[in-house]
Design a protein around this nucleic acid. Sequence first.
DNA 1: TATTTATATTAGACAAAGCTAACTTTTTAT
DNA 2: ATAAAAAGTTAGCTTTGTCTAATATAAATA
Lengths: 220, 220
Amino acid sequence: MTLTKTEEDYLKALFHLSLENESDKAGTNQVAEYLGLSPASVNNMLKKLKGKDLVAYEKYGKLTLTESGKSVAVRLIRKHRLWETFLFKHMNFTWDEVHEVAEQLEHIQSSKLISELDKFLGHPKRDPHGAIIPNEQGEYSLEPHITLASLQVGDTCRLTSVRDSSVPFLQYVSRIGLALSSRIRVAEVQAFDGSMTIETEGNAYTVSKKFAEHVFVEKI
Amino acid sequence: MTLTKTEEDYLKALFHLSLENESDKAGTNQVAEYLGLSPASVNNMLKKLKGKDLVAYEKYGKLTLTESGKSVAVRLIRKHRLWETFLFKHMNFTWDEVHEVAEQLEHIQSSKLISELDKFLGHPKRDPHGAIIPNEQGEYSLEPHITLASLQVGDTCRLTSVRDSSVPFLQYVSRIGLALSSRIRVAEVQAFDGSMTIETEGNAYTVSKKFAEHVFVEKI
DNA sequence: TATTTATATTAGACAAAGCTAACTTTTTAT
DNA sequence: ATAAAAAGTTAGCTTTGTCTAATATAAATA
């Protein structure tokens, strides 16, 4: 079954939202917000995807991807991340530039191209944002998602990946000298709003709680 | 102005047909045939493209691309041929496999990606079918299109490029041992139907006139 | 529990790009 | 020069994916 670009975008949205929500479910309005569409449009498309057995839900109920829908989504994410890696490593793109073009490239249909690209890149495990790339079978490890925001004063960590691929966020991360593998020490946390002062490479920066929640780390 | 994939496909079709016809013009039915659509659909789209000043024509008259339309088409052809080159040289695609995927890749919008790809490939002059790749400014040389069919008994030539990118044609070319730069000698020509017997690498094959008209050569 | 708010659905309209069938204009051939 | 054929156009319908406005259900709160 061949899906349209639009159908693929819905499945990917559902996959991402399911991961963020508890219990692998998402809501119509949430999908609409995520894709920048009206709830009516989303409802309309959901009917079609349900008919194709890619999404499961009861009227007025929460949405889940079926196994088949999940598999399509994971393959898309694999393609997206492989293309991001290609753009970053071979086309001189910066990490804030790769997402937009990969959004287009992920819809190219050619299994040969993807397996060759994977080989060409040396079967990379992570994309330029540190996100894990699912393998050819669609398997991927869900690593512990510890955010910078969960650390305490005095803790030291290493930046493993970022939650957001948006240009403003990534440029901000770079601006304060952070990148994948950066070592970070938490110097201060404000009880008032959770903002924290961090040290990296000898410099100190104060960042909001929201920011810290978008940075994944491993403690060291 | 951003064009849809569909609009781009029409412009590319018009460009190719204009080159094949005398006087850089094409007809509605011809475009319909080329794209596998009904003349009515084509007429419909032509109105839109005329409104955007990409195509020029009078009612019931022949079609030409405007300078602006030509420029869009050439940029698409450049992208198509660069992607074909990439697939062939780095993704282990054969020359009969590249066209289909390049048809998709040519619609990716990113000028940075194309200029980086060009650099990555070493600014190639020709694609895997021997076709000339327009440069960044959209300039390209129209080389003399001498076909194998125009040669006489005893002439010797080298295969420079092929007119057709279809899988059956390219597989046939390969099957009889021909590739870019192959040396060919014309051993015999039938006055009856123009079919010709050619020698290459010590083997002889008889091919139709139609076939010979799809093979571009330079005399040696 | 009753009411308000949030979420989800339906109905009806629209634009893009396709189609068929009918019609008009141009070209070709008798 | 006229009739037949080919090419181009128009009208009206279809599908896909979007929208707004109105309505129905579920969840939250008073």
